[in-house]
């Protein structure tokens, strides 16, 4: 456990000195929290949306509980579109941190002396993974908390707050988020074993956010509905994807493989 803590502290003290990583960790959650809050503020302060129930299309009204006013429903609909973008945070941050962490070690040739210590590869892998996952989840959860508090301050409508605190989004933030972060780390390890430039590793690893973008556009196009069924199905699919990615990342993250095969 002490060695895992040492690895986590080492990773943080090193990667957070990298501007690119720092930018991703700090700026991305800020942006993705500010956008839905800005939308809520703009729509709640506009008289145009306030009582506009008759002008709201039926498809949007169908999206909300029946007791929502047209204005409330419009706010909920718009913000829901952007809430899915929030799920980029637990993917992008771990991908960025682990790319710089692992490829950085390759470039500095520091993996061999590290592997020569009495640490097990499991401890090393857990340490590196947690060092990438913890900031991502912290940023996601802090961002989500700020979003809920901000929404409360701006509109003070318990029904709308309740809508964003229902099972779907709690599953998304507290179950799908960690599963996504694990996918991102495992995927980055697989990519990092093949490339020698942290920026290339990061860019390739960012492919992992494509499913979230697909969900975003699918929802906008009305192909996907982000209901509880979709969220639970996502949990199952992600768990399976994680099992596969973790299996391959563990296979690649063996002492001998790292020393002799990672180029």
């Amino acid at each position: 456990m002490k060695k895992i803590q040492t690895i986590i502290r080492k990773e943080w003290s090193e990667v957070f000195k990298n501007r690119m990583v720092l930018f991703t960790v700090a700026f991305l959650p800020l942006l993705l929290t500010a956008i839905p809050l800005g939308i809520i503020y703009a729509t709640s302060s506009s008289a145009e949306f306030a009582g506009a129930s008759s002008e709201i299309p039926g498809e949007i009204n169908a999206f909300c509980p029946s007791d929502f006013s047209g204005g409330d429903c419009f706010q909920v609909f718009i913000v829901s579109q952007f809430m899915i973008m929030f799920m980029i945070i637990p993917l992008a941050i771990p991908a960025s941190i682990s790319s710089y962490s692992i490829v950085g070690e390759k470039v500095n040739r520091s993996l061999e002396p590290l592997l020569a210590t009495p640490i097990t590869t499991t401890e090393l892998l857990i340490g590196k993974s947690l060092a990438a996952i913890i900031p991502a989840l912290a940023a996601t959860w802090i961002g989500f908390t700020i979003f809920i508090l901000g929404t409360w301050i701006i509109i003070a409508n318990p029904e709308i707050i309740g809508y964003f605190l229902d099972g779907r989004w709690l599953i998304a933030i507290f179950v799908i988020g960690p599963l996504m972060a694990l996918s991102a780390v495992s995927f980055s390890i697989i990519i990092s074993s093949r490339v020698n430039d942290p920026r290339v590793a990061e860019q390739v690893s960012m492919i992992i956010i494509l499913p979230v973008l697909a969900a975003f556009f699918g929802q906008m196009a009305g192909i996907i509905t982000l209901n509880i069924t979709f969220m639970l199905a996502s949990v199952i699919v992600l768990a399976l994807v994680d099992a596969v990615l973790v299996f391959f990342s563990i296979r690649l993250f063996q002492r001998e493989t790292i020393i002799t095969r990672w180029k």
């Binding site: 002490k2 040492t6 090193e14 000195k17 520091s110 061999e112 002396p113």
Partner: peptide, 18 residues
């Protein structure tokens, strides 16, 4: 092979801990 963003002392402390 060193963590070049860290001080010499910090580098050695990491290894001493491991």
């Amino acid at each position: 092979g060193w963590y070049d963003n860290l001080s010499a002392e910090r580098n050695l402390e990491i290894y001493a801990s491991l």
